[in-house]
Amino acid sequence: MIRPYGTVIFIVFFAFSGCRQVADFRFIKVMGSDSEVNLVLSMAEKYMQRDSLASIGIIGGGSGMGIASLINQRAQLANSSRELTEKETNLLKEKNIEILRLVFALDAIAFVVHKDHPLDTITLSQVSALYQGNIRDWSEISRQQGPVRLYGRQSNSGTYLYLRDQIVKAEYDNSLLGLNGNAQILEAIRQDVSGIGYVSVGYLEGKSASEKQIKVLMVKNEENGNCYSPLSQEDLKAGLYPVQRPLLQFLALPASDLALDFVQFELSAEGQDMIRKNGYLPLDTLTHQQMLKALTKARQHEG
């Protein structure tokens, strides 16, 4: 008599637990930018440690790919290091997909030279000319004599492509040294008076530039414009520093709880701290508040 009871209890238990799992097990897919993929992945891992029933799949493939899968409804969240193109906006409209544009971090690129280099400011056109190899001697733009040595990243770096496509707007000179990372560029510049390099601002945080024995150049948009420093939080927050880009995510609406919670986590103090640790800039207060507001609205959209 006991045995059948036990079996029944087991079945009931399994049935319930099964139901619970189906109800609570949540999954979202995030696709897009290769330059964001590592950052988002590390945040997703942290999030999933907290919420064992959540599963967040992160796939790279480039910003375009991420947005395309949003359009095709194969992903709920797209990472993008650029804004939507007109074509993409139209496609979303056609398919009647509403999206939320989220800025969750900032990336600014600083140009660095040796601490003894006479140059203090640089214009974007000079940056472009230097990196294209049109300026080969420092005497053309500064009091320093001697050839220019260009330090950069290898072609698998997102920054390499961003700078080339957005700032240099031409192929790099083939004497560009392809180093392994931001830290290596800083190390090289520290020892080379003739060098110029670019690094993510995140790598300059913590220690002061003089401690690192490098000089961070102020950047001007054009010859007579104002100069802005990537080290000035005000300039960055105001969006005045010309070589900065927001790290974007596009969220398809209505969004699932998990997607909303994950974005919330990205915007939380812990998430922003991880962004800093990954070498990017956390959001300024204003943008941060805007984003939180937008997120609340998105939750209501769902409700």
Binding site: D34, Q154, S155, N156, N174, S175, L176, L177, G178, L179
Partner: peptide
């Protein structure tokens, strides 16, 4: 240094066959 230029001597940066595969295969 992995520069793409054609090296003219030992003081130039070079990019070898192996480095090229290692850098580019990932992307």
């Amino acid at each position: 240094g992995n520069a793409l230029q054609f090296p003219h001597g030992f003081y130039d940066s070079v990019r070898t066959l192996t480095s090229t595969i290692a850098i580019e295969l990932g992307e």
